[in-house]
C-alpha cells in the first residue's frame, strides 16, 4: 500500500473515531432522557417531555420534572463524565491501568470526611447545615490528593511511589472510617452507610452548577494536554525525549483529577467502577490517541452513570437503590465481559 493510501486510511480511522465519540455523546443524551422519564411518580412519557419543553402541564408535574428529576439526571451525567475523565488522566500519568480516584483513596477520604461530619458533627463553620457533609467530603478528598502529591514530590514523584501512597491512603481512610462507624450511634451509622453507597437523592441545582463549573474549567486544559498525555503512553523517557515536561504534566493532571473527583464524590458519595471502566471502554472504542480517548471517556462515563441512575429506579420496583451500589453490582460483570471480549478480538 502506498504512503498516501495509508494516510487516507489513517484519516478514515480518525473520522471513524470522531463518529464514535459523537455516538457516545448522543447515547449519553438519550440515556439522560430515559433517566428523566423513569421514576416512582409514574408520569407518562408524553407529559414529562411536555414539561421539559415548557408546555402546559399541572404544577406538580412541572415540579417533579424540573426540581426532582432533571437535577438528578444532569448530576448523574456530570458525575459520570467527571469520574471517567479523572480516571483516564490518572491511568495515563500514573502509568497504571488500575489507577482511578476510587482505588487511590479519594473516595475513602471523602467517606471519612462525611463520617466526621455525620458522627462527630465537626464541619466547616458558618456553612448551611445541608452543606456540612459535602464540604467535609470535598475537603478530605482534596486533602488526600494534595497529600498524595506532596508525598510523591518528596520522593521524586514517580508513578510507583504515588500509587503506593494512594493505596496506603485508601487503607488509612478506611481504617478511620471503621473507627467512626464503631463509635457512631445507630442513626448516624445508617446515614453514613447510605452516604458511602452513593446517592443522587440530595442533589440540588446548586450542586449541579458547582460540578458543571469544575468540569467546564478542567476539560479544556485536559484536552490541550492530549498530545503530551499520548506521548507519556510511550514511557516517561520517550515522552521527555519528545520535549514533554513530564513532572509538570503529571502535577497539572493530578490537580485536575483532584478537583473533578473531590467535587463529584463529595456531591453524591462513593461511586466505584465508573472511573475505571469509563476510560477502559473508551480505549477499546477509540485507542489511546488522547484527542479521542479523553472525550470518549467523558461520554462513556456519562452514559454509564445515566444508565445506572435509571437502573437504580427500575431494578426493584418501588425502591430506589443507592446508585453506587448499582454501578458496582451491574457494572463489574459488564466490565469483565468487555475485558474478555477485548482479549478475544486481538
Amino acid at each position: 500500500m502506498s504512503g498516501s493510501a495509508l494516510l487516507d486510511r489513517y484519516h478514515r480511522q480518525n473520522r471513524r473515531r470522531t463518529a464514535l465519540v459523537a455516538t457516545m455523546a448522543v447515547l449519553a443524551l438519550i440515556a439522560v432522557v430515559i433517566d428523566l422519564t423513569t421514576g416512582p411518580s409514574g408520569l407518562p412519557l408524553s407529559e414529562t417531555l411536555r414539561a421539559l419543553a415548557g408546555g402546559e402541564v399541572p404544577r406538580g408535574t412541572s415540579v417533579i420534572v424540573w426540581q426532582v428529576r432533571l437535577p438528578v439526571a444532569v448530576m448523574a451525567l456530570l458525575v459520570g463524565a467527571a469520574l471517567a475523565l479523572a480516571g483516564a488522566e490518572m491511568q495515563t500519568v500514573l502509568e497504571n491501568p488500575l489507577a482511578e480516584p476510587f482505588t487511590l483513596g479519594v473516595s475513602a477520604a471523602a467517606a471519612l470526611g462525611a463520617g466526621v461530619a455525620i458522627v462527630l458533627g465537626v464541619t466547616v463553620p458558618f456553612l448551611p447545615p445541608a452543606w456540612g457533609i459535602t464540604a467535609n467530603a470535598f475537603l478530605f478528598s482534596l486533602g488526600a490528593l494534595t497529600l498524595l502529591q506532596l508525598m510523591g514530590r518528596l520522593r521524586g514523584g514517580g508513578p510507583e511511589v504515588l500509587i503506593l501512597f494512594g493505596i496506603a491512603l485508601n487503607f488509612t481512610a478506611a481504617a478511620f472510617l471503621s473507627l467512626l462507624q464503631f463509635i457512631a450511634s445507630a442513626e448516624d451509622l445508617q446515614q453514613l452507610v447510605i452516604w458511602t453507597m452513593g446517592s443522587l437523592q440530595a442533589v440540588t441545582w446548586g450542586s449541579v452548577a458547582i460540578l458543571a463549573v469544575v468540569i467546564t474549567l478542567t476539560v479544556p486544559f485536559a484536552l490541550m494536554a492530549s498530545w503530551k498525555l499520548t506521548a507519556l503512553r510511550l514511557g516517561e523517557e520517550q515522552a521527555r525525549g519528545f520535549g514533554v515536561d513530564v513532572t509538570a504534566l503529571r502535577r497539572r493532571a493530578l490537580l485536575r483529577v483532584s478537583l473533578l473527583a473531590a467535587t463529584a464524590v463529595s456531591m453524591v458519595g462513593v461511586i466505584g467502577f465508573i472511573g475505571l471502566a469509563g476510560p477502559h471502554i473508551a480505549r477499546m472504542l477509540v485507542g489511546e490517541d488522547h484527542r479521542f480517548l479523553l472525550p470518549a471517556s467523558i461520554f462513556t462515563g456519562a452514559l454509564l452513570m445515566s444508565a445506572a441512575s435509571t437502573l437504580s429506579k427500575l431494578l426493584i420496583a418501588g425502591t430506589l437503590l443507592p446508585i453506587g451500589l448499582v454501578t458496582s453490582l451491574i457494572g463489574l460483570p459488564v466490565f469483565f465481559w468487555l475485558i474478555l471480549r477485548g482479549r478475544q478480538a486481538r
Binding site: L6, Y10, W227, K228, T230, A231, R233, L234, A239, F242, G243, V244, R283, G287, E288, D289
Partner: peptide
C-alpha cells in the same frame, strides 16, 4: 499502548 506506529511518530512531532 494501544497506538499504531504512525500515531507514535506524529506524537513525537506534536508532543512538545
Amino acid at each position: 499502548a494501544s497506538l499504531n506506529v504512525l500515531e507514535t511518530v506524529i506524537t513525537a512531532l506534536r508532543a512538545s
